[in-house]
Design a protein around this nucleic acid. Structure first.
Length: 804
DNA sequence: GCCGTAGGACTACCA
DNA sequence: ACTGGTAGTCCTACGGCG
């Protein structure tokens, strides 16, 4: 023992990443940890899963064998009895250990009993078992490269160093072919170094000129090694740059390495998202992150390109380079400009990384998911991971993933959602908007909504005071806090504390950035729990739970509306968690709000969102006669003069800029100046501009996302015909591409006339008048008593008119 | 064969 | 590949008309 203790060292380091390897029949978790240096350490850990069988079955289970892919024999290593909590009850299970992770499915397939926890990626299983937190500090005993014991985990915030890179490729046939077409240029930006590597003469001082493609790849290896970043950032690098570089390194026999410990660049598929994993360095492809942030509404770019996202997020002006002409520039031998553009792309990638990585890092440590996987995760996966982590902590059985049949069943029975009140179209003054802070999370916490607290069995019927009964008649026990409400409560409480702390911190500090990122991460996670309960592929799916959440939501909003009306307010509109009132006196609103709050559970709260001096609601398009109001479509003017506009065409990317800009101007003229004459003039001017034929094509472009393979569409539509025209020129159009098109003059149907912006030559005046401008503005003007005809005629003649 | 319209496919929004 | 509620566009099939 004492001999050993001389080689045992107690250490601490930040936990960056976990993987596993099998050596000599033993399974080792590989941990990448950052102390003074960043190293890879090993720790032995046996994979296992659970079997719902009796102790007497153990000998039979241990006698099972299976055949591995390599032909060798796989058999269980050992077994023990354990107990797990299932809901409010306990259950005895056999914990069956295997030699290596890939043995788990092999052995499991030989077992007739129900099994559990057999489908959990092994490195993450380890994080749960050891209750680690990514990016926090682990304290451990180490002997050489092996960790003997993990002692504790403490909070921490590593400073992660970033480096971005971008490659340019030779592409004479349009899409570069990684087998044949060389990479011609690589740019990189780190914290201490930046530059471009290429192999043709260039006069720029930031460019390192080498002799061949092979030398360029090796120079990149050197540059990365020198900078030694923790994170390597790219944009769409999992699908393009890294596979390309990997192939070029192979073709040129280059001594190429981007990782820290080994040369491997591995494809890792996570759900639908493709990732590329490096050894010991965290490769972060910003593209899936951008998609994730767009999905949850954190960013809102016109398209997913690096340019467009940079413009939206960093407010940096576009410097567009035509990617399909890179080969021409290369052949021209005048590559100065190409070098500049390439460096700009790396610059933008790094800047975006500085914005996004902090939030990803906080998501990682809050959701207990290693950073690399976090960057490739959906919110459902993050929630699931966090629940699995906490289930392990509570010794609760982790539910299995549903099978295909269960998934389809769940999909066929959707859950009733929120309530939306029909607004009366019109222009209103003095509106107050109140909303429930975190409605669904607060309902889940307040009523202890959890698959485990749900009293389904009449046998565990309790008395009325022992459970909450939802409007859908589900009963949730008050006896014990459920896993879901527990985790959610923790997230909400933590966010509250962080928000308080943020008020005391200087905005320019790193601490502020970190705390605000953490607050963001907590919000993203908390808001995903309800969706997760109703998500068909969820381990914790529960129809009664999800139904109860929305039912309680509808109940509370209905009660609030009723209470407001009883207090003498006119309620104009309500959607899910908000109510729009007309008030005479602000104090009345505050009094009403306090009154509502007095009648709510502790964790629920109605907040004042704001006072709005003026607002517009419009009618639905095709109910002109009865003038039914349109839901989810309104424009408000705040007291600070800022507008809050929802649902109008001007917030949608599938409308032309001409229509959207005019609609905005019209709304502002009405909201800010109360001038319908000005609004009418704006419209007439735009009509004239359109008729002149001189509107730039970019302002006429309509952007639409292609959501499936082009061949997979059942119908012909403008976006698909435009996409096909674009694809015919050799440009890649895949699932997820956002295509911009203009309706041109030639063609019969609108779809025929649709031409990709890049190829557009002219535009169809009538289409833009009748199908873009007029629909966008007339709904608003109608509220002011105008009709379409008078405006259009007014646009033709410069004078008119008695009407105005 | 032309016209008008109901219904379906599809997208993007709000919460 | 987190949920449901909603407006709106464009295309297509279908029925009436002649």
């Amino acid at each position: 023992m004492s001999a050993n203790s001389q080689t045992l060292k107690v250490k601490k380091a930040y936990f960056l990443d976990a993987g596993y390897t099998v050596k000599g029949g033993k399974t080792y978790i590989t941990l990448v940890v950052k102390g003074k240096k960043t190293v890879r350490l090993y720790i032995q850990h046996d994979p296992y899963f659970l079997v719902d069988a009796a102790e007497s079955d153990i000998p039979n289970l241990l006698a099972l064998t299976g055949i591995r892919k390599d032909g060798s024999i796989s058999k269980p290593k050992r077994a023990e009895m354990i107990e797990k909590k299932v809901g409010l009850k306990k259950k005895s299970l056999i914990k069956l250990y295997c030699e290596q992770p890939s043995d788990v499915p092999i052995i499991k397939s030989k077992i007739g009993f129900t099994c559990f926890e057999y489908n959990i990626p092994f490195a993450r299983r380890f994080v749960f078992d050891m209750q680690l937190t990514p990016l926090h500090v682990i304290h451990y005993e180490r002997e050489g490269r092996e960790i003997k014991k993990i002692l504790s985990v403490t909070t921490g915030d590593p400073t992660l160093s970033l480096m971005s890179f971008d490659i340019e490729t030779y592409n004479p046939t349009g899409i570069p072919n990684e087998e044949k077409d060389p990479a011609v240029m690589i740019s990189y930006v780190g914290e201490n170094s930046k530059g471009v590597i290429t192999y043709k003469p260039c006069s720029k001082d930031f460019v390192q000129v080498v002799k061949t493609e092979k030398e360029m790849l090796e120079a990149l290896t050197t540059a990365i090694k020198k900078e030694n970043p923790d994170l390597l950032l790219g944009y769409n690098s999992s699908n393009f740059d890294l596979p390309y570089l990997k192939m070029r390194a192979q073709k040129t026999n280059a001594n190429f390495n981007m990782g820290r410990f080994g040369k491997s660049i591995k494809f890792v598929n996570k759900g639908n998202i493709k990732g590329m994993r490096l050894d010991g360095r965290i490769h972060v492809d910003l593209f899936p992150i951008v998609k994730f942030f767009s999905f949850i509404g954190l960013i809102k770019a016109q398209s997913m390109s690096l340019d467009s996202v940079s413009e939206d997020v960093l407010k940096r002006k576009k410097v567009k380079m035509k990617k399909d002409e890179i080969w021409k520039i290369w052949d021209s031998n005048d590559i100065d400009l190409l070098c500049e553009y390439s460096l700009i792309d790396s610059d933008l990638t790094l800047e975006l990384g500085k914005r996004f990585v902090p939030i990803q890092a906080e998501l990682s440590s809050v959701a207990k998911m290693p950073l690399y996987e976090t960057t490739l995760s959906t919110s459902g996966q993050l929630v699931e991971n966090l629940l699995m982590y906490n289930a392990s902590d509570w010794n609760q059985l982790i539910p299995s993933k549903p099978g295909g049949d269960t998934i389809s069943e769940r999909l066929e029975a959707p859950i009733q959602g929120a309530f939306v009140k029909l607004p009366e179209p019109g222009i209103y003054e003095n509106m107050a908007v109140l909303d429930f802070r975190g409605l669904y999370p607060s309902i889940i916490i307040s009523y202890n909504i959890d698959p485990g607290t749900l009293l389904s069995d009449p046998a565990d019927a309790s008395t009325e005071s022992e459970y909450f009964k939802s409007p859908t008649d589900a009963k949730f026990s008050k006896k014990e806090k459920g896993l879901v409400p527990h985790v959610l409560d923790y997230l909400v409480e933590m966010r509250g504390k962080i928000k308080d702390e943020l008020k005391t911190v200087d905005k320019s500090t790193d601490l502020y950035t970190r705390l605000s990122a953490r607050s963001h991460a907590l919000k993203i996670l908390a808001n995903s729990f309800y969706g997760y309960l109703g998500y068909a592929r969820s381990r914790w799916y529960s129809r009664p739970c999800a139904e109860s959440v929305t039912a309680w939501g509808r109940m509370h909003i209905a009660e609030t509306i009723a209470r407001a009306e009883a207090s003498g307010f006119q309620v104009l509109y309500a959607d899910t968690d908000s109510v729009f009132l007309i008030y005479k006196n602000k104090d009345d609103v505050i009094k009403f709000m306090n009154d509502v709050n007095d009648h709510l559970p502790d964790k629920m709260e109605l907040e004042l969102e704001g006072f709005y001096p003026r607002g517009v609601f419009v009618s639905k398009k095709n109910s002109d006669d009865d003038g039914t109001g349109a839901k989810k479509k309104y424009a408000l003017l705040g007291e600070d003069g800022r507008t809050k506009i929802r649902g109008f065409e001007l917030v949608r990317r599938d409308w032309s800029a001409v229509a959207k800009e005019t609609q905005l101007k019209v709304l502002e003229a009405i909201l800010k100046e109360g001038s319908k004459e000005k609004a009418a003039k704006i419209i007439k001017d735009t009509i004239n501009e359109l008729r002149s034929g001189k509107v730039p094509l970019e302002r006429l472009a309509i952007s639409t996302q292609i959501t499936k393979d082009l061949a997979g569409y059942d119908i012909i539509s403008p976006e698909t015909t435009a996409a096909k025209k674009l694809a015919a020129t050799g440009t890649v159009v895949t699932k997820g591409t956002i295509i911009s098109y203009v309706i041109g003059k030639s063609g019969k149907t609108i779809s025929d006339k649709a031409v990709p912006l890049e190829m557009a030559k002219d535009y169809d005046v009538d289409y833009y008048l009748d199908n873009q401008l007029m629909p966008a503005v007339m709904k608003i003007m109608k509220e002011l008593g105008y009709d379409e005809y008078s405006l259009k005629v007014g646009g033709k003649q410069q004078s008119l008119d008695s009407f105005f």
